[in-house]
Design a binder for these strands. Structure first.
Lengths: 258, 258
DNA sequence: AATTTATTTAGTAAATATTACAAAATAGAA
DNA sequence: TTCTATTTTGTAATATTTACTAAATAAATT
């Protein structure tokens, strides 16, 4: 929990430690098995849900700030992170549902028009991907809930966050098509089934189980290990790992996966 | 020309009209024939060249601000514009070469640490593409030159603008691969040679003259017109235009061109 | 120890797409 | 009419993708 003194200091003096007028919002995608989810938080003072977000410390790079925000919400550090778009419409943060009385009750402060939090803010959107089973969602200073929603059943979200989710998903899928993103989302050693399942979940479509790995192998991205994983009463799958050199080259120069 | 009074007002009161801490930088690509160029400006007070940039008016959307900036530098409005990345390293705007004396001489102001222009700024990068022959480059308030450079012979640039140029080019080429960008850069009616040449210039590589148009035609993106264009002592090429419906669908859903 | 089960993996034929090149078409100039 | 430069169509060779089949095999069951 955050103390009222902490909250008060953030509201009154935050602009000394953070860059005003700029925020970061994170579309944190979670997958597990065949389900793709997104992490949302419920702000205490407005009705709808929001993407987790925050401000940028004056000493931080953008990606470091995004990392911090994602770690605070999920408990997981050093996740794969990518910018997808920056949002800056003058009226993007308008809402009719701000509960002024509740704000005063919780913070003890009547916010003024001069406060740094009130002025127009431009938000840099990042997306990240993680196995949601490994996360421990935690609300932030201004919210009282933080949880995963199926990507097909997102509740009403505030501000321009619906557009953000759409753009994040679209960019993530284009990236997935061009770059071997998997490195950041699979354990060091994994089976062909696991990477196949990951791609199906993220892309939201079926990929032929027999043909899918061939592309990756043809491109030299995967290295077959002699180890196998024994799970269940059936042929044990080989373990693979990414071939670092080919992987980095593909990340840098781009490839085309299906 | 800008008067000293105008410059003074911008320095002292700009934060009332513009969103502080956020700027826009534009990688304006120009093509003509087989040459790809980029528009740079020479700031009066620092040594290297820079991407054209500016601040966002408090009433503007990001894309509207970018449009204004591009129009002010090139004379051309409503160009094709796309965000490519936002840059926010805390030390991104550091330079050793700021000429303080010259600044004072030109503006009559000793800039203080409290001035809105001095504080940390996060910059949203946009790229655009145009036929450079149609442009009339014009320096801005703080610069005395504005001109086109061959993409392979960019001079020393300041700040993180070298990285910006690299990122802009890379994003533009990925977009070109996924979306039929041509609509915004060709006259309404054009020949197959013209669109072929545009793609070769932007991608920086040769595309088979015979095979290239087949893809576009197969995808139903082009509509053959009965008109022809007579240029020179050889077979006159047919004119084509984009098939609006298929084009919009491709823009929305993405396709794969080569 | 043989059989069954579930799944991985290799293999392949057919369909499709790409590439490289050749040839035909044609508008205007000579 | 012939020549020139370029557009446009055609095609054979090659490569890739797709859909499907069959073999392999680890563990469970009989």
């Amino acid at each position: 929990m955050y103390t009222q003194a902490e909250i008060k200091d953030f509201i009154l003096n935050g602009h000394l430690h953070y860059v005003p007028h700029v925020s970061i919002d994170c579309a944190i995608f979670g997958y597990h098995g065949q389900q793709l989810k997104i992490l949302l938080i419920k702000n205490k003072f407005i009705k709808g849900w929001c993407l987790p977000g925050g401000y940028i410390k004056r000493t931080e790079t953008l990606v470091k700030a995004a990392n911090r925000i994602v770690k605070e919400r999920t408990g997981i550090g050093n996740l794969f992170l990518q910018q997808f778009k920056t949002f800056g419409d003058p009226d993007r943060a308008k809402t009719k549902d701000f509960d002024e009385e509740k704000w005063f009750e919780k913070t003890g402060i009547r916010i003024t028009k001069k406060n740094w939090l009130i002025d127009q803010t431009i938000s840099v959107g990042f997306y990240s991907i993680t196995d949601f089973e490994k996360s421990v969602p935690k609300p932030d200073l201004m919210s009282d809930e933080c949880k995963w929603f199926d990507i097909d059943h997102v509740p009403r979200v505030e501000f321009d966050h619906k557009e953000m989710i759409r753009e994040a998903l679209q960019t993530m899928r284009i990236h997935l098509y061009h770059y071997p993103i998997g490195y950041n989302m699979l354990p060091e050693k994994f089976t062909l089934s696991e990477i196949h399942c990951l791609y199906e979940t993220l892309l939201g479509k079926k990929l032929d189980i027999s043909n899918f790995p061939k592309k990756l192998i043809t491109l030299g991205l995967l290295k077959k290990l002699s180890e196998k994983r024994s799970i269940g009463a059936h042929r044990a799958p080989h373990l693979y790992k990414f071939e670092k050199a080919a992987y980095d080259k593909a990340l840098k120069e781009g490839v085309v996966l299906s």
